[in-house]
C-alpha cells in the first residue's frame, strides 16, 4: 500500500500525520518505508531521527552549446517548449534553470553542436529509523526544478509493502510527482475556510490523478463541523481527527511523536491504519 500524505498548503500538519502513521504501521508489525518528498523543506527526520547513509547527488542533463560548431539555425530554440535556449545571431545561449531536460535540443541539432552536462538538483539519502525505512531528498538552494528529485526519492524504496510518501504542499508539479503511483491519498486539513479552500484543490488534484482519497482533520475543535460538511458534500471519508490542544501543539513543535504523547491520538492512528488495511483488502 502506497499512501501519499498531502495537503493543499503548508503548515497543516501533513508531516506530523505522515510520521505518526509510519510509526503506527511499524508498531503493528508491518514493514514500512517513509519517503520525505517535501524536498524544499524536508523535516520528517526531525521527528524520526533516522540513521542516514551518504547523501547522493541527483542531477539532470542540460545542454551545452559549442558555439564554434553552431550555425545559428535556431532549431534548438524552436523545439524548446520552455524557452531555455536562445538562438541569437552570434551566440546560442542556454538558461539551465529553465531547462526541463526533455532532450529535444540535442536530438534536433543538425550540427551536433550540443552536448550534455549534469546539473545537480539536490541530494538523496537513504537510511532507517528503528524498523522504519527512511529516504529524504534535499533540493539544492536556489533550484526550481523539483520533480526529478522526488522521482529519485521514491525510486529508493526496496520491497517494503507499506510506503508512506510525505508529499510537498500545494498542487503544482512537485505534488503531482509525489502523488503519482500512490494507491491512496491522505489529505490533511484544518477546520478553517482557508484550510477547506486548499483542501478542495488537493481533492481535485487527487481525483484528477485517479487516486482515491480520504481526509485527516488536524487541529479539530469540537462543534466546528465545516470539514464534515464539505466531506459529506464531496462524498469523502474523514478517516482521523487530531484534536487541537495546547499539549499536542507543544509535542509537535518539540519534534515529539503524538502517538507517544496521547493515548487518544494513538488510538485514532490505529483506527486510521485499520481503515487503510480495510481499503487495501477491498481494492
Amino acid at each position: 500500500m502506497r499512501i501519499a500524505v498531502a495537503s493543499g498548503k503548508g503548515g497543516t500538519g501533513k508531516t506530523t500525520v505522515a510520521v505518526n502513521l509510519a510509526v503506527t504501521v511499524a508498531r503493528s508489525g508491518r514493514q514500512v518505508h517513509l519517503c520525505d518528498c517535501d524536498v524544499e523543506e524536508p523535516n520528517a527526520a526531525i521527528y524520526l531521527d533516522p540513521q542516514l547513509g551518504p547523501a547522493v547527488p541527483v542531477s539532470t542533463p542540460i545542454p551545452v552549446v559549442d558555439n564554434d560548431l553552431c550555425n545559428h539555425c535556431g532549431q534548438c530554440a524552436a523545439i524548446c517548449e520552455f524557452n531555455a535556449i536562445a538562438c541569437l545571431p552570434r551566440q546560442t545561449l542556454v538558461f539551465p534553470d529553465l531547462c526541463h531536460s526533455c532532450s529535444g535540443c540535442w536530438l534536433v541539432c543538425p550540427e551536433q553542436a550540443i552536448t550534455q552536462a549534469d546539473r545537480v538538483l539536490g541530494e538523496v539519502s537513504v537510511g532507517s529509523a528503528g524498523s522504519i525505512g527512511f529516504t529524504q531528498g534535499v533540493l539544492r538552494i536556489g533550484e526550481t526544478v523539483v520533480p526529478p528529485l522526488i522521482h529519485t526519492v521514491k525510486a529508493t524504496v526496496r520491497g517494503a509493502p507499506w510506503v508512506i510518501l510525505d508529499a510537498p504542499p500545494g498542487t503544482t508539479c512537485p505534488a503531482v510527482e509525489a502523488l503519482r503511483g500512490a494507491d491512496f491519498a491522505l489529505l490533511v486539513t484544518e477546520p478553517t475556510p482557508f484550510g477547506l479552500h486548499d483542501l478542495d484543490l488537493a481533492v481535485k488534484l487527487a481525483r484528477g490523478l485517479d487516486i482515491p482519497c480520504g481526509i485527516v482533520e488536524n487541529r479539530a475543535i469540537p462543534g466546528r463541523d465545516i470539514v464534515d460538511r464539505y466531506c459529506a458534500e464531496m462524498d469523502l471519508p474523514v478517516l482521523a481527527r487530531i484534536p487541537f490542544t495546547r499539549d499536542l501543539a507543544a509535542v509537535g513543535s518539540e519534534g515529539g511523536l503524538l502517538v507517544d504523547a496521547d493515548a487518544d491520538v494513538a488510538a485514532a492512528f490505529t483506527q486510521l491504519l485499520d481503515e487503510l488495511v480495510g481499503l487495501e483488502a477491498r481494492a
Partner: peptide
C-alpha cells in the same frame, strides 16, 4: 511569447535580435 509559461523574456530577446 507573451503568454509563455516561462522564459517569455528569452523568447522576446530572440525576436528582437532577429
Amino acid at each position: 511569447g507573451k503568454d509563455a509559461a516561462q522564459g517569455a523574456g528569452v523568447q522576446a530577446a530572440q525576436t528582437i535580435a532577429a
